[in-house]
Simulated scan of single mutants.
Amino acid sequence: MQSPTNERSFTQLIEFDIEPQWLQALVTALSEQTERLARDFPGFLSATIQASEDGRRVLNCLQWQTREAGDAAFRSVEHGEGNFWRLIQQHRAKAVTFGSFQVLRNIERSLDDALHCPWLNQAQRGIREGDSHYQKR
C-alpha cells in the first residue's frame, strides 16, 4: 500500500552539461540561487551541488518538504530574480535535464556512527511515532 503523498519529501534534480571552463561560475551562481531559495521559501530541506570528475556535468539536487513547495520555488526562479533560463545561457549549458522525484526511503549515518533508516509511512507499518531502524557499524 502506498503512503499518502503528503508524507513524502520531494526532490528536484537539475543536471547541466557544460564545458569545464564554466564549472566554477555555474557552481557559484547555483550556490547563490540555492541560498536565496532556502532563505525565501518555506519547505526547503536541503540542497547539494555536485560536479562530475571531468567537470562537464553539474548536478543540482534540491529537497523540499512537498511538491508544492518545490514547484513554488522553481516558478520564482523561472521568471523572477536570478532568472533560471538566463543562468543557463550565461554559463553556456549545452543541455539541461530536469527530474522530479518523491523520496520513498532515506538512509543516513548519524553522528554516533549508526545507520538511521526511518520508515516514511510508520502508521501503515505499525511502527510507533519516533521509532526507526538503527544499525551500528
Results as ranks from 00 to 15, higher is better:
1 M>L: 13
1 M>A: 13
2 Q>H: 14
5 T>W: 04
6 N>G: 07
7 E>K: 09
10 F>C: 01
12 Q>S: 03
12 Q>P: 01
13 L>R: 01
13 L>W: 08
14 I>W: 03
15 E>P: 07
15 E>V: 13
18 I>N: 02
21 Q>L: 14
22 W>P: 03
25 A>T: 11
26 L>T: 12
26 L>M: 11
26 L>N: 11
27 V>G: 07
28 T>Y: 13
28 T>C: 11
28 T>G: 10
28 T>E: 15
29 A>C: 13
30 L>V: 14
30 L>A: 14
31 S>H: 12
32 E>D: 12
32 E>N: 11
33 Q>C: 10
33 Q>E: 15
33 Q>Y: 10
35 E>W: 01
36 R>D: 03
40 D>W: 03
41 F>R: 05
41 F>A: 03
42 P>W: 09
42 P>Y: 13
44 F>E: 00
45 L>R: 00
45 L>D: 06
45 L>T: 02
46 S>I: 00
46 S>W: 06
47 A>C: 03
47 A>K: 07
49 I>M: 05
50 Q>V: 06
50 Q>D: 06
51 A>G: 01
51 A>L: 02
52 S>T: 00
55 G>Q: 01
56 R>E: 04
57 R>C: 01
58 V>G: 02
60 N>G: 08
60 N>Q: 14
64 W>E: 04
64 W>Y: 02
65 Q>A: 03
65 Q>F: 04
66 T>G: 01
66 T>D: 03
66 T>I: 06
66 T>V: 05
67 R>N: 07
67 R>Q: 15
68 E>Q: 11
69 A>R: 02
69 A>W: 02
70 G>P: 02
72 A>W: 09
72 A>P: 10
72 A>K: 12
75 R>L: 15
76 S>Q: 09
76 S>N: 11
77 V>N: 09
78 E>N: 13
80 G>P: 06
81 E>A: 15
82 G>C: 10
84 F>E: 05
87 L>A: 11
88 I>V: 15
89 Q>R: 15
90 Q>S: 13
91 H>V: 01
93 A>G: 10
93 A>T: 06
94 K>W: 10
94 K>S: 14
97 T>Q: 12
98 F>K: 12
100 S>Q: 11
100 S>M: 08
101 F>S: 05
104 L>F: 04
104 L>P: 03
104 L>H: 06
105 R>D: 05
106 N>Q: 07
106 N>V: 03
108 E>H: 00
108 E>S: 04
110 S>F: 00
116 H>F: 05
117 C>A: 10
119 W>F: 12
120 L>I: 09
121 N>D: 15
121 N>Y: 06
122 Q>A: 12
123 A>S: 12
124 Q>G: 14
126 G>H: 10
128 R>P: 07
129 E>G: 11
129 E>S: 12
129 E>H: 12
131 D>L: 08
131 D>M: 09
131 D>I: 03
132 S>Y: 00
132 S>Q: 06
133 H>P: 04
133 H>M: 12
133 H>I: 09
134 Y>E: 10
134 Y>R: 04
135 Q>Y: 13
137 R>W: 11
